[in-house]
Simulated assay, not measured.
Amino acid sequence: MYIPNTKALLIPTLLLSFASTAVAEGAPQGLPAEVITLKERAVNSNIYSIGTLEADESVLLRPELTGKIIAIPFQEGGKVKKGDILVQLDDAQYRAQVAEAEARVKQSDSENRRVEKLFNRGVGSETDRDGTQATMKINTAQLDMAKINLEKTRIRAPFDGITGLRQFSPGDYINAGSELVQLVNIDKMKVDFSIPEIHLLNVSVGQAFSIRLPSFPGREFVGKVSAISPVIDEKGRSISVRGMVDNKEGVLRPGLFAEVILTTDSKTALSVPEEALIPQGNQYFVYRVVEQKIDMVPITIIQRKQGAVAISGPLNSGDVIVTAGQLKLQPGSPVTPMFVDGSQPAPGAKKEAATEGASE
């Protein structure tokens, strides 16, 4: 009696059943291709320039008097407050001049009061009274001048800041006008740069910009335009612009070279990787996946930046775009999407949604 080979019959049946189930569930068919989900991103219109950082305030301190240095209360490279004494000159001579002037003022004040009494009694003359008053004013002015010179022996910080390196020591004899030490305030930094005159209407006070520095690769510092020169440079046909950059961290230093990026306009646009573009003559296209088939869509390039391309065309956010494998594909051909941006729908999501809709 013939016994059929049930194993041989079962395998084709199972394969046929699996294939039918796969087709029924809408399993991907066709060649595999890397895809992403189309999204919008900010697209900025920028003006690029270069500049050099400068301290918000900077001064090279010089003495107004000639004398010997007797004290240096500051620490090189340290922070100081406005009014702090940085250098003290020998003030013995000037203190003596103040004492002498004070004695003269006291004497002239007594003489003036005595003459005033006599004049009020009708004994003294008006000339004597005017003379003593003038003498008192002269002596008072000389006292003020002596006090001013005494104060000039103390070189103080004109603003909060950081001191530079000194090239002198206690005991050094310095002349008036000699360079002592530099003081800078770097809580904020100035950056001066130039832009072509054609962008005159695209820049305004308060406008945001960013800077990149070779000393800080990968970082950007944000600032705002603080002033615009009222004069156009006739030789370079450019406009001088000054910006302020916050430096609360204290990492920026005067003299650093900076690349300036001035944003003139900002909007959103659809963005695809550079490799998604398909050039044909003077036109560019992308492959869009619609119901797991290829649809060829013409696009217009708005901006290229660091491997990303902002585009416009008959596309929508959420469309699936092919980024690799285009050479093996053509419009209308089936495709198996392989999401490389982590946006792939959860397995079975469509089936569950269909089931819920049917149950309702």
Rank of each mutant, 00 (worst) to 15 (best):
K81C: 01
D130E: 13
A99E: 14
E40A: 03
R121A: 02
L86V: 08
S45A: 15
A141Q: 13
R129W: 09
K81R: 13
E116W: 14
Q75A: 13
I36E: 03
I138P: 13
E40V: 03
T153V: 04
I69M: 02
E40P: 08
R41T: 07
R104Q: 10
E116Q: 15
D130S: 14
E151K: 10
Q88C: 04
D56V: 05
Q75E: 14
E64R: 11
A101G: 09
N139C: 02
I138M: 07
E40T: 12
I70E: 04
E116K: 15
E76T: 12
V80K: 08
S49K: 13
I72M: 10
R121W: 06
L118R: 07
F74R: 07
I70N: 02
A99S: 13
N44I: 14
D90E: 12
N139M: 08
A42K: 09
N44E: 15
V35H: 02
L86K: 05
P63G: 05
S49Q: 13
K117Y: 08
G51C: 09
L89N: 00
L118F: 03
N139T: 12
T127E: 13
K79Y: 14
R121M: 14
K68D: 05
D144H: 09
Y94D: 02
N120K: 15
T135L: 14
Y94H: 02
D109P: 09
I72L: 06
L65M: 04
K152A: 02
I72W: 04
S110K: 11
D128N: 11
V98I: 15
S49A: 15
T37E: 06
F119N: 06
G51Y: 00
K81V: 02
V123I: 15
V87I: 08
M136V: 08
T153E: 01
I50E: 11
R41C: 05
T52F: 00
T52G: 01
P63K: 07
G122Y: 10
Q133K: 13
A42Y: 11
F119P: 00
E64L: 08
I69W: 03
E64C: 03
D56T: 05
S125C: 09
L150P: 01
R62E: 09
S108R: 10
Q93M: 11
R41Y: 06
E102R: 06
I70A: 03
E40Q: 11
P73R: 09
T135K: 07
T52Y: 02
L89D: 00
F119T: 01
I72Y: 06
V105G: 05
L118D: 09
I69E: 11
A99D: 12
A92W: 04
M136K: 14
N112W: 11
S58D: 01
R113L: 14
I138K: 11
R114V: 06
L53P: 01
I47R: 11
E151W: 04
R95Q: 09
K152P: 00
T140A: 13
T66R: 06
L86P: 00
R114H: 07
N120F: 09
K81A: 06
D90I: 01
K152S: 01
F119S: 07
V98P: 00
S58Y: 04
E34C: 05
A146P: 05
V123N: 12
A71W: 04
A71F: 02
V123Q: 10
S108N: 14
T135I: 12
E102W: 06
Q97P: 08
R154S: 05
V123Y: 10
G131E: 12
I155A: 00
K82V: 09
D128T: 08
G124K: 10
K152V: 00
Q142T: 00
L118T: 10
